[in-house]
Write a protein that binds this DNA or RNA. Structure first.
Lengths: 212, 212
DNA sequence: ATTTATCTTGACCGTTTGGTCAGGTTAAAA
DNA sequence: TTTTAACCTGACCAAACGGTCAAGATAAAT
């Protein structure tokens, strides 16, 4: 561990932060792979490289750990959502949002997979969050899209269907990453391949709604 | 049970078929909700309305049951895949394929979710199937799309990206069905809403690749 | 130097889990 | 009628699981 002399408990605080981060990262991965019920605290401890009792020392229960990670994933999702503002230029906004979501899938695939698990099993823990924070955001974005349609800036498409298409397509690169890898001759997409995919996704969707 | 007199073991055969179907349906649902590891044989038995020992009487292990259902889901997927043939008319073929996939999500959401679980956790059981049957089919369809592009029938898009977009968008209605339901004021999509979504998905994608 | 607070962790506990078994029931075959 | 085969299932087993605890180590405060 750190050899730097501690001042005012900084060392103990650093120990806590380092261990918590290690456990959170391990847990995100294990929950992403197996879902809440399928994940074991033994496996999380193993990946985090700490004794199982330590997981419980820092996070009282498996569920507490799970909720903590989901909050973090939601915060990250919100950052991408913020790129979708009320600008007058739909092509610019939609391009920015799709790219932000694609990038999120690229840099944090486990978070997306964890979310997918959560939704697939019925959104047991996140139902309220989805029906409030996420739904309010979605409904307000749908109003913005409707405004663009009314102003003749884009085709008259059903806005919810468009948003679901964007969610689905962008998260696919995280959730079904392994399948895409198998299709790519068992190799992860290179940065170039991913950039090309991103550009094609943006292009097809923008043209699909009359913006390119 | 059936009161019809049996002839040549038909009754016993009917018992087996009925019980197997019940267990398979229950298992598909439980595996869809919780994934392989998170699902329990006790839960499957409960949903199937049979004693747990009966599950093992008909399917030796949990894994045998899981593999059996996955084979079935793959067969079903293949049926939709068959709509994508070598026709000269890309708009017609893509529309047919997208619609078949959307319908599959509508009539068999658990199968799609089970598949999603399988892929999210790394395609542990299905890796070979994906890298052979599915990949060969995908690669051959990509060649067909390239042919259409070469003939100037559609835009020069990256065919794999297009196929992933179709997979993602159509399966979203099954895998993230709960989220969509929450966004729909906690009500499942009506048939009319689903038909509208399907039409919009087809329209956006076809236009997005220069086919509408 | 001593005390206090935090960290560490092997061992343990009660519950859950996948799977087995023995004995009984029912239907079909001989 | 008897025998055979298939179905049924409560009880049980060993292993896995989430979580706890006591005792020791370490760092910080007094």
């Amino acid at each position: 561990m750190s050899t730097k002399p501690a001042v005012n408990g900084a060392h103990k605080a650093a120990i806590r932060q380092e261990n918590e981060e290690q456990i959170l990262a391990a847990a995100e991965r294990v929950f992403a792979d197996f879902g809440f019920k399928g994940a074991t605290t033994a496996r999380i401890a193993e990946i985090a490289n700490v004794p199982k009792a330590n997981v419980h020392y820092y996070f009282s229960t498996k569920e507490a750990l799970y909720r903590r990670i989901m909050e973090d994933v939601c915060d990250h999702w919100l950052e991408a959502a913020m790129t979708f503002d009320n600008s007058a230029d739909p092509a610019f906004i939609l391009r920015g949002y799709i790219e932000a979501k694609m990038d999120l899938s690229r840099v944090r695939p486990y978070g997306s997979r964890l979310w997918a698990h959560e939704i697939i099993r019925g959104a047991k823990f996140s139902s309220e969050y989805i029906s409030t924070t996420v739904k309010n955001w979605l409904d307000s974005r749908v109003e913005v899209i409707r405004g663009w349609i009314d102003e003749g800036k884009m085709d008259d498409v059903e806005p919810y269907t468009l948003m679901y298409m964007i969610f689905a397509t962008t998260q696919h690169y995280a959730d079904f990453g392994r399948q895409i890898e198998i299709f790519n001759n068992d190799k992860p997409l290179t940065d170039a391949q991913f950039a090309e995919a991103k550009e094609n996704v943006v292009r097809i969707i923008l043209k699909g709604v009359g913006l390119a």
